[in-house]
């Protein structure tokens, strides 16, 4: 098979995972909300990285929060990953993006594996396990499969789990996904950029790092025993921003020898050096969501001087696939660029 086809095949694979996907929309993370504000690098961020947004002045940002599904039907209350894509608007119409999500790791270490995984993870019809199977599970000290949400007829979860049972690389993501829950607010979840980037310090020291956003309001999920609400996240954020900015701390873990630097399926141990790189303040939700959200296309490979992609093969593939997807749906790389 042709290497060149890979980005397109990745996009097609994601689209195939959501049978009701509407052409012209994002293949995944279809439902989202654009927010603007600014990011300010911490006083020590510049000692680690020469990139413009870490120099300590305010940098305007556009953030898009999203649910991970590629389906046009909104289910805010379902346990699922959420996305937070951040565009840092730099000088001279330049920009850099940071794409993050609530999972700590990916399901696949390579694009080839991802194709296989997404095939397995296609939605299958789901219904509650019969009562006797639940009892059998319980007798094995195995938690019974949770019942589908009311109105849910299909799910990708059984396929993902199956895949993970046969592919160890997918196990951490599968377990993480099973325990995610639904956030009470887009501003109350931790978002991980998952991939490793290489930053350059003023003295040319290079570091392998991973970024994550931590909400200053704290992390909270909805009550899993209460019936899920389909539409509350966008309203909650509008309401919240009327009173206060939503703040996120940008933290950076520094990778060490022996860490899975290039493997996005493996989260790093929690006790890596944790550097405070800056604070994000989200201030308003632009009325023109078409420009600031729907038409904007983020890309995990949009780098800037001092910030490079590592050789993580999934990162490289995603960067290309996002570009394919942008062209397919006529998105613009940057709302301020003339292109």
């Amino acid at each position: 098979m042709d290497e060149q086809d890979m980005p397109q095949r990745l996009v097609d694979a994601v689209i195939a995972d959501f049978p009701d996907h509407a052409p012209g929309t994002r293949p995944a993370h279809t439902i989202g909300l654009g927010v603007t504000g600014y990011f300010r690098g911490s006083p020590i961020a510049r000692d680690y990285c020469i990139a413009e947004h870490f120099q300590g002045h305010n940098v305007p940002v556009t953030v898009r929060f999203s649910n991970s599904s590629g389906s046009p039907v909104q289910h805010d209350g379902w346990s699922d990953a959420r996305g937070m894509a951040t565009r840092f608007h730099l000088q001279d119409d330049q920009a850099t993006d940071l794409i993050a999500m609530t999972l700590r790791e990916f399901f696949s270490p390579t694009p080839e594996d991802f194709l296989e995984f997404s095939k397995e993870a296609r939605p299958r019809p789901v219904k509650p396990d019969p009562w006797w199977r639940k009892i059998l599970d319980m007798l094995q000290l195995k938690p019974p499969n949770p019942d589908p949400y009311p109105g849910q007829n299909e799910s990708g979860a059984p396929g993902s789990l199956d895949y993970a049972n046969h592919h160890r690389s997918a196990q951490l993501a599968a377990l993480d996904a099973a325990m995610l829950g639904a956030p009470v607010s887009y501003a109350r979840a931790t978002y991980n950029a998952v991939h490793t980037f290489i930053i350059t310090a003023p003295d040319k020291t290079k570091r392998y790092v991973r970024f994550f956003w931590q909400p200053v309001a704290g992390v909270e999920v909805t009550d899993p025993t209460a019936p899920p609400v389909d539409d509350y996240l966008q309203g909650e954020l509008r309401e919240r921003l009327r009173d206060w900015p939503a703040e996120f701390l940008l933290l950076m873990a520094v990778g060490e020898g022996g860490d899975p630097l290039l493997d996005p399926t493996q989260a790093w141990p929690l006790h890596r050096s944790r550097v405070v790189m800056g604070m994000l303040k989200l201030i308003e939700i632009p009325a023109d969501q078409e420009t600031f959200c729907e038409k904007m296309s983020y890309n995990p490979g949009r780098m800037t001087r001092g910030l490079e992609m590592s050789d993580d093969p999934v990162l490289a593939a995603r960067a290309q696939a996002y570009e394919v997807s942008r062209k397919m749906r006529g998105g613009s790389p940057c709302p301020f660029s003339k292109g």
Binding site: K142, N165, H166
Partner: peptide, 15 residues
């Protein structure tokens, strides 16, 4: 070397 595992048995492993 590589599975298959049963991730749903994780709680039992902990127990």
């Amino acid at each position: 070397a590589d599975g298959p595992d049963d991730l749903r048995l994780m709680p039992r492993a902990l127990i």
